[in-house]
Simulated scan of single mutants.
Amino acid sequence: MPFTKTHSPSWAPNIFANKVVLCTGGAGTICSVQVAALVKLGCNAVITGRRLEVTEKVAAELQGLRPGAKVIGISADVRDYKAMEAAVERTVKELGGLDFLM
């Protein structure tokens, strides 16, 4: 079916508004850029990293990308099942759900 004006493009304004993404390794170079794009498009986010200080710093920078954005930095090792389970629970509790996992 050809694209028509009745179909919204994937970059339509607010398509990601109030969605929640959890990104493991979100404090790293590649993943933080992906999360930045989603935050700019309207997502709120939780990022995890092994070093709390770095993770919280990146979370604060990401939160500053869009007025009203909520970005939480959590120290967690992706190899630790319990830590990741706790990160998911905190994401749902503080941001109201979980729509995307990276």
Results as ranks from 00 to 15, higher is better:
53 E>H: 08
82 K>C: 10
83 A>W: 04
25 G>K: 07
17 A>T: 00
47 I>E: 02
101 L>G: 11
37 A>Q: 10
80 D>N: 15
72 I>K: 03
33 V>D: 01
42 G>S: 05
37 A>C: 05
16 F>K: 01
45 A>W: 02
68 G>K: 13
43 C>R: 10
79 R>D: 13
66 R>F: 04
91 T>N: 10
15 I>C: 05
66 R>S: 09
95 L>P: 03
40 K>E: 14
97 G>L: 09
47 I>T: 03
57 K>T: 15
72 I>A: 07
61 E>I: 02
13 P>M: 00
69 A>F: 00
100 F>R: 01
85 E>C: 12
7 H>M: 13
7 H>G: 10
11 W>Y: 13
2 P>M: 08
78 V>C: 07
56 E>Y: 06
86 A>Q: 14
66 R>M: 02
25 G>A: 08
58 V>N: 04
26 G>W: 04
71 V>E: 08
91 T>G: 05
102 M>A: 11
90 R>Q: 14
1 M>T: 03
59 A>K: 04
8 S>E: 09
54 V>M: 12
80 D>S: 06
8 S>M: 09
10 S>P: 06
82 K>M: 15
81 Y>K: 13
12 A>V: 12
29 T>C: 09
15 I>P: 00
68 G>F: 09
21 V>A: 14
78 V>A: 15
87 A>R: 06
74 I>M: 11
53 E>T: 09
29 T>P: 02
11 W>L: 07
94 E>F: 13
19 K>L: 12
2 P>I: 11
13 P>K: 12
44 N>P: 03
47 I>L: 04
52 L>Y: 00
18 N>P: 01
57 K>I: 09
94 E>V: 11
30 I>K: 03
45 A>K: 02
81 Y>C: 08
94 E>A: 05
79 R>T: 14
49 G>A: 03
27 A>R: 09
43 C>K: 07
98 L>E: 07
3 F>D: 12
67 P>K: 12
63 Q>L: 13
22 L>M: 04
28 G>T: 11
37 A>N: 01
33 V>Y: 03
53 E>I: 07
71 V>K: 03
5 K>E: 12
80 D>W: 05
71 V>Y: 03
59 A>N: 03
45 A>N: 01
79 R>V: 10
37 A>L: 12
50 R>F: 03
95 L>C: 07
94 E>W: 09
56 E>D: 11
35 V>M: 12
29 T>K: 09
4 T>P: 05
62 L>G: 04
6 T>P: 00
51 R>H: 09
30 I>M: 12
97 G>Q: 10
86 A>K: 12
24 T>L: 07
43 C>L: 05
28 G>Y: 02
40 K>Q: 14
34 Q>H: 15
70 K>S: 11
46 V>E: 02
81 Y>P: 14
51 R>V: 05
73 G>P: 02
87 A>E: 10
